[in-house]
Design a binder for these strands. Structure first.
Lengths: 344, 344
DNA sequence: AAATATTGTGGGAGCGCTCCCAAACTTGTT
DNA sequence: AACAAGTTTGGGAGCGCTCCCACAATATTT
């Protein structure tokens, strides 16, 4: 035998492996696919040859024969233009791809782009025949979108509860409302009463739910809602956190809840520039618990959201749907956790 | 005929389309693949049927028969953990996927992850049989990596000139050195003499080249290099820009060049906190020209790098290699541009 | 020991394309 | 009118798997 085929790609196929190990194509196939009815002895024999030649079944052939490509589509909207400084989608993407790889699925990526015709783009997405299923970031989702997704006839999971038709669709989401509420209750427990909120991008359920949590916490504490303390134009970006905070500073607040850490960090800058102390004059809480929350001065109290796990559950859920182990809708809410640091 | 097959996926195949349009499988195949030898009249006839039924050839079948899957792999290292606040990779990713889609290729994504065994991960990457070619972010690249890439026997393109073996490998890169030099020459022209530099993450050619440009500009102006004015620990992150600037402030500089916009923005914060004015006391320049550079106060002078085009050229180059239209190494340097705003 | 159930193995057909070759039809040339 | 050369079309083989069914080998029951 040769010596250094160890690393390169061998162009052997099932048939070759079968011949080399003295069995039939079918048996090799069974071994490769972990089918039960193979005797231990032949299994070993075949596996040895497979190892030796570093044989990997041809994915296209497999996909053609089985009508499953082991590919999942990931659709994420305008990742760049809008959510510039927010690493949420990067982390999510990483979570999804890692989870997919761990179960031998390949992720193919669809990112909308400003300078590309949207309708042509979505035609491409929905006509795709490669992906067995899709994971969709909810920001893209509206009623007609869900309809097309359904028409496609393949399973999908939405990351983030959609506004539309969410009773029937499959999604994975964090307990945004509960998290926000926990944060605001924490602020109240610290004796804060005039609590502002810097909201997230409108049109996203995460923003809606976090605002809802803020409102509900105040209501339960019998603190009247003051609309002037809710910034209308937050959008999860660094810039909007800064300007949002500037506005709130006109209303002598003693605490603020920012709908994500990025905005909280820039709000902290605004607070400091106004000559106020954190947390003595103004306490501040964020949401996400990403890297930044530990690098701010003082460190940021925040709500930890399991972004990576969001991807994880989405992948597992999708594959469960794919393999018929579970019936849609598959819906999963992941718990969040209050992380108290120095900013409150 | 039915009425609403307009949008759903039809499960017709070439054979069906052939029957419906009264020609043979082969002819339909020719039409689909834009082969020349089809008479105008049959082409039209077939196209009409294809449109009507929204027929798309089955990618797996096509891949199996042609041994080309129209898939490109994208490999990006530790996007999250390290380059947290730097949207460079997000924009790049968007550029690549958009370019790929426009030529009917699907991008599959490989992201390294901290909590996954690296060697297993790379085994997966290199044993992948799906992708026809790969686009690799240079941060991952070392000699043994390139060797395995070569062994794979499929074309690849590195984004960002690698340190190793770059004479033989295919890459696309920006004129980092030239850009840095333009920036520093600009600062010198403004009368600045004590110019600091906040460097990028070590181990990347972009960091190296930008530092090189800084040095060469100073040398050409006969300004001695003062090692104390070069921060050793920059890494393109927000935090490192801030702390780097704090250090430089001990050395009464009158200008600073940050190796990217993210660090420039946080350096500006440090400058302001020290009570100094921009650009009167300290002029500052960045690199990249991403969204941030327009939201800083004052707006940031920077070097515009064509990130999206980087992805574009990488995809086109890869496909040229794939289709044998060009011989490796394919190497392309993209021009950069000095954008003067208010910070200098 | 024979009959039956269980487990293990091989071969054929088929997934939906591409690509080659041969046949049929055009067109042009002498 | 006969032939060469070019253009257009159809059919077969094959890409490398999966999956079903039939058969062989072994284990279990009576």
């Amino acid at each position: 035998m040769g010596t250094d085929f160890d690393n390169g790609i061998t162009d052997l196929n099932l048939e070759d492996i079968a011949r080399l190990s003295g069995v039939s194509r079918s048996t090799v196939s069974r071994v490769v696919n972990h089918h039960p009815n193979v005797s231990e002895i032949t299994r070993r024999k075949v596996l040895e040859i497979i190892e030796r030649y570093n044989f990997k079944p041809h994915p296209a052939a497999r996909a053609l024969a089985s009508q499953r490509a082991n590919i999942i589509g990931i659709l994420i909207p305008h990742i760049v233009s809008d959510l510039f400084t927010d690493p949420f989608f990067s982390i999510l993407l990483q979570g999804i791809t890692t989870a997919a790889n761990s179960v031998n699925y390949s992720p193919i990526l669809w990112l909308t782009s400003a300078n590309v015709d949207e309708s042509a783009f979505y035609d491409q997405v929905f006509n795709d025949r490669l992906a067995d299923g899709m994971i969709v970031a909810s920001a893209t989702v509206n009623a007609s979108f869900i309809k097309r997704l359904d028409q496609r006839g393949k399973p999908y999971i939405i990351i983030g509860r959609p506004f539309t038709a969410y009773e029937q669709s499959s999604y994975v989401d964090s307990e945004n409302e509960q998290g926000a509420r926990m944060m605001v209750e924490h602020l109240i427990k610290q004796g804060r009463r005039r609590i502002g909120m810097i909201t997230g991008r409108s049109g996203l359920t995460s923003s809606h739910d976090r605002l809802q949590g803020y409102i509900s916490a105040l209501q339960h504490a019998d603190i009247p809602i003051d609309m002037r303390l809710i910034t209308p134009a937050g959008d999860y970006s660094d810039a909007s956190g800064y300007t949002g905070m500037k506005l709130l500073l006109h209303h002598r607040i003693d605490a603020v809840f920012a709908a994500n850490d990025v905005m909280a960090a820039s709000a902290m800058r605004a607070i400091k520039e106004a000559g106020l102390r954190i947390p003595e004059d103004i306490a501040i809480g964020g949401f996400d618990d990403m890297g930044i929350s530990r690098t701010t001065e003082p460190q940021l109290t925040t709500v930890q959201q399991p972004i990576t796990q969001l991807g994880d559950y989405a992948v597992r859920g999708l594959i469960d749907l794919l393999e018929g182990r579970v019936e849609p809708p598959f819906q999963q809410m992941l718990p969040v956790k209050l992380i108290v640091r120095q900013s409150t």
